[in-house]
């Protein structure tokens, strides 16, 4: 369980596989029902973004252990068009397609830590962590 597992995202079915992967790992790590649901929702959102805007990419899930503090990290990677105005997409209410409606700021609030790096025409890497309480 120490190695990260990844799911390729190319179509909507892959979103489900990514959720499944995340839920299994969250369960194993001992996350409660609510946090499991939050983690899988975050995964859904990130995977949906890949599917809608980049076309393809991958979602990786890894357990983390920092000095005995356990958690789960989601990494979403794609080689898509990148995000021109990161500040804008991190604003509430800025969503360009339906989705769950809250987009990246929503994901940030569901998780404990969140970081995003994006280069136009190169791709985007988003990583989000949830700590076990």
């Amino acid at each position: 369980m120490d190695i990260q597992s990844c799911v390729e995202v190319r179509n909507e079915w892959d979103i489900v596989s990514a959720r499944q992967l995340g839920r299994n790992m969250a369960k194993e790590l001992g996350f409660g029902n609510v946090d499991q649901a939050r983690i899988t929702t975050a995964i859904s959102e990130l995977a949906r973004n890949i599917y809608l805007y980049a076309g393809r990419g991958k979602i990786c899930i890894e357990p983390i252990d920092q000095l005995g503090r356990k958690g789960l990290r989601i990494v979403a990677l794609d080689n898509g068009p990148g995000i021109r105005e990161i500040r804008k997409v991190m604003e509430d209410g800025y969503t360009t397609s339906g989705g769950l409606g809250a987009g990246l700021p929503g994901v940030k609030r569901l998780m404990d830590e969140f970081s995003i790096e994006s280069t136009v025409d190169v791709g985007t890497e988003i990583s989000a962590t949830k700590w076990l309480r």
């Binding site: 649901a37 939050r38 929702t41 769950l100 409606g101 809250a102 700021p105 929503g106 609030r109 569901l110």
Partner: peptide, 10 residues
Amino acid sequence: MIGYGFAYRE
């Protein structure tokens, strides 16, 4: 309910 939680936090 997660979606409502999303909206609530927003």
